[in-house]
Each structure stands twice: as C-alpha cells, then as structure tokens.
Design a binder for these strands. Structure first.
Lengths: 174, 174
DNA sequence: ATCGTTGGTTCGGTCACCGAACCAATCGCG
DNA sequence: CGCGATTGGTTCGGTGACCGAACCAACGAT
C-alpha cells in the first residue's frame, strides 16, 4: 500500500486538523466514509455506487482499516468481507454533517437531493446533527435519510436503488 | 486556472457532501481556509506558513475566490492583496472544528499542539464550537487559540511566530 | 536609479489517479 | 463433482496534478 507517499506531507503543520487531513483528506476517502454511514459495507457496493477506480478503492479501504476508521470483518455465514465503521469512524459524523450542511446552504442550486430527518419525530435536521424540534443531539443511528425532489432516480446499482427509499443511517444495505 | 480538471469528478454523487468536496476537498484547500481563520490574509504569509508550492497556492486562492469562499481585497493604504473569508467561508468553521476535534480525540499521540478557549470565560472548547461552561455556541471571533505544550516553537515565519501567543480567530496577522 | 518585497507565472520531473485488463478464491447450481 | 458467475482484488500503461526551482513584472523605499 502507498502510505501517503506524497512529495510533501502536512507534518510540519503543528495542528490536529492537518493530521486529520492526512488521513481522511485524500481524494475519495470521505465519500467512502459517507457511504459507510449510508450502510454500504462491501467492496463491490462501494465500487458500483462511487464509480471509483478499483485500485484506488482497495488502497483507501486498506488505509482506513489500518488506521482504525473501518474494521474489516467476515460477514456471518460466508467469508465475504465487510467494512464496518469503528468508534473512530463513527466519530467522523459531525465532520460530514457540517460539510453536508455547509454545501447545502451555500452550493445548492435547486431542490434538495437528499433530506435528513429525526427518526423519532420526523423533523428535518438542517445541520444533520441535532433536531430543531426536540432540541437534542441526535445519535447517528436515529437519523433517517431519504431522496429529495432532485434525487437521481436513473441509477440502477444496488446502493442507489436502496437509497431511493427512506432509511436509517448505518443500517446495512443488503 | 484548472477547474478541477480531473479525469473524473464527483458530479454523479447526488449529494451535497460530494459537491462540497469538489470545492474544498482538494489537497491544501482546507489548510488554506484554516489559515484564513487564524488571521492569515496575504499570499506570502500563506506561502511561508503552509510551505505550499507557489503555483498550487495561486490556483487554490483563485478557485476559492471565484467560488465565493474568499474575497480578494486591496488592503487600505496600498495595493497589496488580501484574501478574506466571506460569509460562505466563515460557514466552514463547523466543518473545520469537527475535523479538529475528531483528530484531537483519535489521532493525538501526546500533549496538545494547540488549544481553543472561549474568550469570555477561558474555558477550553473540546469541540471547538461551543463552551462547556457557558453552554452556548461560541461565535468564531470569540474563540481564542494558543500554543499547547507540544507546539512547535522552532519556526520563524511571521505567522508561526504570531501564533505562539494566544490570539482570537479571524484577527488579522500583521 | 536601484534594490527589495510582493504576488505571481513558467517549466521539467515525478507521482498519484484513471480505466481497462487480468486473476485467484469462492459461491451457486445442475 | 464440474462449471460459470460473483467477489475482491492486483497489474499495467497513460494522463494529469503536484512538486520545487527558476524566472518575472509591478510597486515601494532609499
């Protein structure tokens, strides 16, 4: 594996943020983690949903596993691998939530592609992390995401199809 | 400028997060934004503090300016350029805060490099966004950052030196 | 006039990413 | 068991982004 063998790294940056970016700041990495929150667990599903080059996916999964963000496990009843978020990986939700909220607020050019609601009350969570109605911080597993008006309904890969109906985050797909 | 001319982009991802990453997910970009929160405003200061290739810095500043994250302004009394965070840029603080908190919690291997406190009461903010003592969300400009025990005190560039004493975020350096 | 600072651009060289092909191990099925 | 399909990769050439160094134009100060 290629351990971030860049010409230069960020290691003189003297800052936690820089060290975080060395790990999850590479191309594709955060999208893989996002898919893991969506419930994607298998190599072939990441591959089809992200349309990422196979070699890059293998490298990122290896790096994320090695660093403790994901855990590679054998699914029960077979030897097929599953990549599951660890506690460390689950800790990335606030970052993804903040980025998603920011992009929705400042980059949106039309109707929403996806929405995020509090499972307990159905209220939409603009910040993807706390419920404006209940006033509480919502655990990731109690967040329901579903397709918005602008969702792409043309894709046929297993993950894209599954995400066309409302689902809780972290609930395994397939 | 090279408008993210990658072999593939993320545009089929149907997700606000992916569109956000297209803009701020490139190498160096979030570190530039972080430095902007630290009060860095000038090309030469970004250059010295980040040790980034000049061409890459020019490209990123251009992209960030064009997309509305930074605004290029002439400083009073001279024609020298200053890159200042816009409202959109300021909106990235929760993302950077979450990433910083995550990295500190899961990647730290010793004493802290930097700390972040609430200017009003001096309490350290573990999540870099709200004050555990006051129980309120803290505006970015009321956050004070200073060097921790593990801070690097060997660097001599203007920004690194300025950051060796406690400063409010967004307060211009020099 | 000249020197230093600022804010870039240009230019090879290298390395990560891309996409397609290849491959081994396992699973499903007759 | 035999055989094809699926899964989870690795390998390989080609392209483009990043790297570092050099060059350069505009401006200020002396």
């Amino acid at each position: 594996m290629v351990v971030m063998a860049l010409g230069r790294d960020y290691d003189n940056q003297d800052c936690a943020m820089a060290r975080g970016l060395e790990l999850v700041g590479e191309r594709w990495t955060l999208l893989i983690v996002r898919d893991a929150f969506y419930g994607v667990r298998r190599y072939s599903d990441f591959l089809a949903h992200l349309e990422i080059p196979r070699a890059v996916l293998a490298d990122r999964l290896h790096t994320l596993t090695e660093s403790g963000v994901l855990s590679k496990e054998a699914s029960q009843g077979s030897s097929r691998a599953e990549y599951v978020l660890t506690t460390m990986g689950l800790g990335l939700w606030p970052t993804l939530a903040a980025l998603s909220a920011w992009a929705t607020e400042f980059l949106r050019d039309g109707p929403a592609h996806r929405y995020y609601t509090h499972a307990a009350c159905g209220t939409e969570m603009v910040d993807r992390a706390s419920c404006p109605a209940c006033g509480v911080r919502v655990p990731v597993a109690d967040i329901v995401t579903g397709p918005g008006p602008a969702a792409d309904r043309t894709r046929t890969d297993l993950v894209s199809v599954a995400m066309l109906q409302p689902r809780r985050l972290l609930e395994p797909i397939r």
